[in-house]
Design a protein around this nucleic acid. Sequence first.
RNA 1: GCGGACGUGGCGAAAUGGUAGACGCUACAGACUUAAAAUCUGUUAUCAGUAAUGGUGUGCGGGUUCGAGUCCCGCCGUCCGCACCA
Length: 836
Amino acid sequence: MKLNVSTRVRRCAVAKIWEEEGIFHANDLSEKPRSYVLEMFPYPSGRIHIGHVRNYTMGDVFARYKRMQGFEVLHPMGWDAFGMPAENAAMEKGVHPGGWTRDNIAHMKQQLKRIGFALDWSREIATCEPEYYGHEQALFLKLFEAGLVFRKESEVNWDPVDRTVLANEQVIDGKGWRSGAEVERRKLSQWFLKITDFAEELLEGLGSLDSWPDKVRLMQENWIGKSQGLRCIFKFVGSQDGIEVFTTRPDTMFGASFVAIAPDHPVAQQMSENAPALQNFIAECKKGGTTAAEIDTAEKMGFNTGLSVAHPLDSSWHLPVYVANFVLMDYGTGAVFGCPAHDQRDLDFARKYDLTVTRVVADGDKVDSDFDGDEAYSGPGRIVNSHFLNDMEIAEAKAAVIAKAESEAWGSGQTQYRLRDWGVSRQRYWGTPIPIIHCEICGAVPVPADQLPVKLPEDVGFDIPGNPLDRHPTWSKADCPHCGGAARRETDTLDTFVDSSWYFIRFASQPGHAPFDKLTAEKWLPVDQYIGGVEHAILHLLYARFWTRALSHIGMIDVKEPFSSLFTQGMVTHQTYKHGDGSWLSPDQVRKEGADWTVIADGSPAIAGRVEKMSKSKKNVVDPDDIVDQYGADAVRWFMLSDSPPERDLEWSEAGIEGCWRFTQRLWRLTGQVSGADGEDKPLSRKMHQAIEGVAEDIEALSFNKAIAKIYDLTNAIEKAPPSSARDEAIRTIIRLAAPMVPHLAEEAWEKLGEGGLIANMPWPDVNPAMLIEDEVTIAVQIKGKLRDTLLAAKGLPNDELQALALASAKVQSAIAGQEVRKVIVVPDRLVNIVI
RNA sequence: GCGGACGUGGCGAAAUGGUAGACGCUACAGACUUAAAAUCUGUUAUCAGUAAUGGUGUGCGGGUUCGAGUCCCGCCGUCCGCACCA
């Protein structure tokens, strides 16, 4: 226990003053420049995780810094409160999801408050409350009216024993997590949002997001997956009907050796009606989960339908038609032609079913049509063995085939996206009810606005798997808003990604009667700095971008991109330990003895495992409450920011937090050293001004580890310096520089230094540019790029004088040893490189 | 399988193409102390050398350049995402 009681009491008092004065409440009417700082809101799982602490500390430092720079800052917090864990808790512990969630929120809110985050709690949101999700239903219906919502069949993971839809994470090795039954893919009619209408916009918009990490933009670009290709028909032999195929490689058409269609392609479905063998094959394909990884890694299987199609470029050339498990109905036309020589999947398939493999793109000097080996060639090259395409470049050949297809009317060039429409239906209770009523006569009818919110019923049970809304005795019964006849409510709820697709707008403006007020929201949006985990790089961020654009499209808000600057922080990791039998041990169950680890309880040997992401199952979690009790919030905050660059993983360690705690003490001791002495200290003052500038730059760039290194540097310099008024000023300044990071200590120190008011309200210290300039610089002297000497020179010395100084150096003279100097490269104020 | 990233001392790291290892942690030595803790001072990439100094060194192999941790090509390893976890 590092903190004594009185310290803890004082720190609580500090937090209370911030709260009483309401200094972190954002003023909608402020005349100041604005800054909207947001961290991804947490799922209320029960306890704040150390990863949250890292995320929110970064945002907090940035928000506090922006306040010091004179901005009106909006820094809100809320809860992504719908989701599966609440239902799991209900099943396991018999508690109601709502009660469980609200208890968790209350507890976690207290935890956050203890860490001293400068949050505007007056804008707190929990997505599970009708005050939030009712507005979400209204927005959903706006999109419905705009034609951006539709219904279609889509596959889900079906557990045939529990008779329940499973989430991907509930499918383990193709089996249901509770029942252990082999999971099947089953089709259900579900609601979708037309995100594909915005594919091009979302792709183009990435270009304007220059304050997003390149990797995230690249991932989204690949996810949207724009490609140009040919859509064309392979006609059945002797028929005008055929199979429509999409390909991005029309240049390889003369290398085609088969056509493959998806198991749920209409042609396959129709044929299977009278073909039990095909039926079995299709059923076989439907085994296992729905994820791309599972489908891609499944062994490639095909079924020869016996059908033949004619090659569009040569109708006398016939190709077999297979049903194949690796062809997806969701992408393109659900049918492809296989060119094994130049596509790995097709090659694997061709080898397995003994189909011809013809080379049509030259691989260096390999041009013969017979292709051997098991590695497809997808690189550049000239077209070979392809009649009129021979000798063309790939791009040229693509254009030639598309032109021919268009002129002969058997196909056309087409832009295709990999992005699929967003399925938002979930067969679960704990989510936003989809505000639709199904009437046998009128179809799917929106719930009228004056009947919103459609509230979740409280009286539900979780003793049986499946959706309690579906089997609720009365809830789903409703009158059709059109004809007044008996009808049934939609019992699916919305994907929780919908909840997180507009919460940042609600934070900016939350009237009671509407989702948000357009003008007020536009004052704050877009979010100036958004911070969260990379794991959200694609889905959440893309959905939120889409939702914002959709609202903009229907005129509800004039904002295209919701997050102008994005930062993705790394995970918090910790050493793991195991028993000899492989079971996990928590770090406090082991002790180091010499080079080895032993289990404290029984002295048996323990194994120090890898440093891994903190998780309950590996027992390497640290509870923020415990460490705040032990070291205080400031030391914990300092640790979250120091050493590791924020975008990388941070390893939690006992030694590390101890070091941070010691630093907070050092800083505190400094504040007792104000001497009142007179006198200048130019080098110290220069260091101080460099720190004011450097720390500001680093915080702006979210390089907290570098900012902290600069604060350490200045601390070292202050400690070494003799008393002077410059030193006293440096002490007062360093507290202000550290204030965003260690706000409690800074507040107390401010009082102790006899300064008035709250440091939280102080501006960032001013830099005197004249004080930044160094008058001497160290010049590196190299010979052929190798360092041989360094010398001190006046800053700004002309190149010829630097060169003369370097050549005069004794070390240089002995290294040259009379050889001819061929060239000298001089970088002003930096180095001289002598080439001999 | 597909897509994306990362790799520098004992450890976390720093370094507009220009002195690799700032800053922190650990460890070791010393001061203070009856003692311990705390604190303070110093050392801490590696090899050779008493030292001065010199060689080597940023995952591995090549390349561009006067000069490469940084740029290019090819490997290896680790991590993240893949549409119903959030």
